[in-house]
Nucleic acid binder design. Structure first.
Lengths: 186, 186
DNA sequence: GGGGAAACTTGTCAGTGGCAAGATTGCCCT
DNA sequence: AGGGCAATCTTGCCACTGACAAGTTTCCCC
């Protein structure tokens, strides 16, 4: 990478997060090993603790970053509820490592301020997508509709990642998601 | 329990599965420790290996048992799609340990024959609930509807378990699920 | 350039999964 | 009845992990 042999590495925090992303995709978030990350980054086994405290700290940072990336993906599909749902599923599949950590709060510090803020932003982006579409109706109705939309997108994404869906849904998550999500939005 | 001091314990396999259920509810499926289960059952640390081979083997047995229990819960609500969805969410919440293992295939042997059979039975129960309701339409349409129903129920259950839902949904999962699922079924 | 703080290393400890080898017990067969 | 066999369970071990403590190197700012 930057290849500069600064012997403080210079960019360890970022390197560890990048290594963590790879590792999570390979073995899942639970089997992640700090020592393995250290090896991947070429530092000693105790180096990660300096930047993240412990494993939960590292996953907290990863989850927060993930929520911000999700916010970005959702806002890009703004105005179209169906496309927002597709974007949600697409995010889960293409950035699987982030997604798998984000919704496993027992692995990180769910009370971390930065994480809560990032999660809040993602929630707002999600709700704004629904509100933009539901022209009329009581706010409580919009809420329930948002919950239903979130549930169906999240459920489809989760089942897809778990490999629980039958083969006949195909191998294009976006297309398959669209067919399912249409059931709710129309 | 049976209290008989048979010095082959007599019922270790069942005792270990019961201990595993408790442990999973306390610390989650990933943090489960075979040695801890052995301690809970009052046997040596290597005893579990004899019945399940390794950790994945134990979780495979647990997942298979879980799919059968889910099948049972779904068939009890047969004929009513909405109630089947509510039963699905209820199962996830009240038998959380089973549910959390079942949909984390990286933790067990997804190619185990008994497990595949049990999962197949659950899938059939799920689809029959949808087929019973959709009076007309092409089979592919029924399939897609089943997928949508499964997704919304699974998504709601997963979000509930992850503690990701806002407080305002209340603390009764059945009632909250009904309000959300109605969005799809009507 | 000197001093202090941050970044990183080395060393250690308890806990875990898995394997191998041995001990104990139930069970079947003659 | 009892001999032997297989299943069950134990003890002992090794490699690995997360976390902590103490030491070393490097950077940065005055």
């Amino acid at each position: 990478m930057t290849d500069t042999r600064t012997y403080h590495h210079g960019d360890l925090r970022r390197a560890l997060l990048a290594a963590a992303l790879e590792a999570v995709e390979e073995v899942g978030p639970a089997a992640l090993s700090l020592r393995d990350l250290a090896r991947r980054a070429g530092v000693s086994h105790a180096a990660p603790a300096h930047h993240f405290g412990d494993k939960a700290g590292l996953l907290t940072a990863l989850a927060a970053q993930g929520f911000d990336l999700l916010t970005q993906a959702l806002t890009e599909a703004d105005g179209d509820l169906l496309e927002a749902g597709v974007a949600y599923v697409d995010f889960a599949v293409t950035r699987r490592a982030y997604f798998e950590v984000m919704f496993r709060p027992e692995l990180y510090r769910a009370d971390d301020a930065e994480l809560i803020a990032a999660r809040g932003r993602a929630g707002a982006a999600l709700r704004s997508g629904v509100a933009a579409r539901s022209t009329g109706g009581a706010p409580a109705d919009t809420d329930r509709h948002a919950l239903a939309a979130w549930s169906i997108a999240h459920g489809f994404a989760t089942l897809w990642l778990a490999g629980a869906l039958p083969d006949r849904v195909g191998d294009d998550p976006r297309e398959a998601a669209r067919a399912v999500l249409r059931r709710l939005t129309t």
